[in-house]
């Protein structure tokens, strides 16, 4: 069977797992085209109006796969970590697509729910693959291999790679001159690893001669620990991921500044980016900017903000007195 995998939503995080799983079971894989204007336009047109940009993009990728495969793989990620949830839009994705994409291709839906335990979540893979006619024994083996691939991928990310380098084949740039510093790039994986909708923010930062670190480089235990300063558990997995990795980068002095990328009307980001910004303003005073993206295709506004941010970082650095002996900023008002 030829299975189409949309390059959208959590594709940059779980692709090695999905690809290996289906290939091990004897299926072939077709990827949707990388996000482009046509995908954005067709997705925005098909999707309900009030959805966020990444959900619209997902619709566009499904449309891109029509007639190119036997069925499109749609993961319904309910929870990816114990006692946590991810954005409710992910739970409704298969239904949104069924109702909005016309004619709708046949869908293979994975129900993945790790709220109770990760082992429970694997049941979703068994259900999906046995519906496709695989034996329990084959599924078990495929799942083990897929998990092996996924763990190797996650190790590579923790080792300093990122999905753009590891999956999208973006070449590591040779930084022309000496590295000017390190910027933490914080945002949902479907934003910062999509070169089209993120206006290529990663490459733009690198081409200003900065090293860029991303949330996927930070160990989960470190994220957990960084978030323990809050009185309540953060039950949105990605909210915690972004906030915790940002806090960790600030706490450990890994970055000279933070660039936060969010899509317009993201409910989770409205909380966590605010928390991160407040904590930075109070304790670290590092250069920080939030850039909101939507369906814009003009780069001018985005580039202005990014250039101003880089200028500000360099200006403050030149000024010299923004770092005290405690490693904290001196921009105390």
């Amino acid at each position: 069977m030829k299975i189409g995998i949309p390059r959208a939503l959590l594709y940059p995080i779980f692709y090695p797992m999905w690809e290996t799983f289906f290939k091990e079971l004897g299926h072939s894989i077709v990827n949707s085209t990388r996000t482009n204007k046509r995908i954005l336009d067709s997705g925005a047109k098909a999707c309900v109006e009030d959805a966020c940009l990444p959900v619209k993009i997902m619709h566009g990728h499904v449309i891109d796969l029509i007639d190119r495969c036997d069925a499109v793989f749609i993961p319904r990620l309910i929870s990816i970590s114990q006692e946590e949830y991810i954005c409710p839009k992910f739970i409704g994705i298969p239904e949104m697509i069924k109702n909005s994409v016309k004619p709708c291709p046949s869908l293979i839906v994975l129900d993945y729910n790790a709220k109770k335990s990760t082992n429970m979540a694997y049941k979703g893979y068994y259900k999906l693959a046995s519906d496709l006619g695989s034996s329990k024994k084959d599924i078990k083996q495929a799942l083990e291999r897929a998990l092996g691939q996924q763990r190797a991928y996650e190790r590579a990310l923790l080792g300093g790679s990122n999905p753009l380098l590891a999956l999208e084949g973006l070449e590591t740039f040779s930084i022309r001159k000496e590295i000017k510093g390190t910027i933490g790039l914080i945002g949902h994986p479907y934003l910062i690893y999509d070169r089209y909708i993120s206006m290529d923010v990663y490459k733009k930062l690198i081409s200003h001669d900065y090293r860029v670190i991303v949330p996927e480089n930070i160990r989960p235990e470190a994220i957990e620990k960084a978030c323990s300063i809050y009185p309540k558990k953060l039950f949105w997995s990605y909210g915690k991921h972004l906030l915790g990795s940002g806090l960790y980068m600030l706490e450990q002095g890994l970055v000279d500044g933070l660039v936060l990328v969010t899509s317009f009307a993201c409910g989770i980001d409205s909380f966590v980016l605010e928390l991160l910004q407040r904590k930075n303003n109070r304790d670290y005073k590092k250069p920080l900017t939030i850039i909101t993206i939507d369906e814009h295709s003009g780069h001018a506004g985005f580039d202005t903000r990014l250039e101003a941010f880089i200028d500000m970082m360099e200006w403050r650095k030149e000024n010299g007195n923004n770092i005290s002996s405690h490693g904290k900023g001196l921009y105390i008002s």
């Binding site: 005073k285 909101t292 903000r305 500000m312 000024n319 923004n322 001196l330 921009y331």
Partner: peptide, 12 residues
Amino acid sequence: NGVVSDFAMNTV
């Protein structure tokens, strides 16, 4: 301290 230390612009 004589430099731009923070800024914001209107969003969308």
